[in-house]
Design a protein around this nucleic acid. Structure first.
Lengths: 85, 85
DNA sequence: TAGATATTTAGATTTATATCTAAATATTAC
DNA sequence: GTAATATTTAGATATAAATCTAAATATCTA
């Protein structure tokens, strides 16, 4: 749902995570280390990004790797296009 | 702030209001009549859209007229573009 | 100016979100 | 199998958002 996407993007921490992932995939730990909040809190943000399909998730050994899924960005763009007639 | 824009767009009622305004300006009352919630509640949503600069507001006699401001959509598009490389 | 209409604001309540601590799960290495 | 590391989940609490009712403000008309 597009509402979930906008809700996911409304949080600053989550937008920063997405920005980081532009430079390539990262583990949950690497992402969490960039923020002052607890790992559990960042994990919660990652779940919201995952549910909104804004990121791909994959386990690699002990780590869980996050990477960008850009297809949803295109869905939003399509929605926004409706307004720039 | 882009976060305010995304937060404004995360609500279904507010997205529906914006959709309606694509067909032309409307008074607060006309907008509110389209929803099952109270006028006061819709007024609250209109304030959020106004604060996020997604709509223009102007009084015309007894009525207050809302219309789309598409410039902010372009700001979001620019932000999203960062992800489609 | 008084009454009617249109809209917003204030204050209360309910629901959702962000964060924390503690515990659970999964994987690796010994 | 036990310990160590990485990550998530569960449960609690605090903050924010959506909604309602009631009251306030602004404009128009008689």
């Amino acid at each position: 749902m597009i509402g979930d996407t906008f809700r996911a993007l409304s949080d600053k921490t989550r937008r920063e995570i997405l920005m980081m992932l532009r430079d390539g995939e990262m583990t949950a730990g690497e992402i969490a280390d960039k923020f002052a909040t607890r790992h559990a809190t960042v994990s919660h943000h990652l779940k919201i990004l995952k549910d909104a399909k804004l990121v791909f998730v994959e386990r690699k050994g002990q780590n869980i790797i996050y990477s960008l899924n850009t297809t949803v960005f295109q869905d939003i763009m399509a929605w926004l296009m409706k307004f720039n007639d």
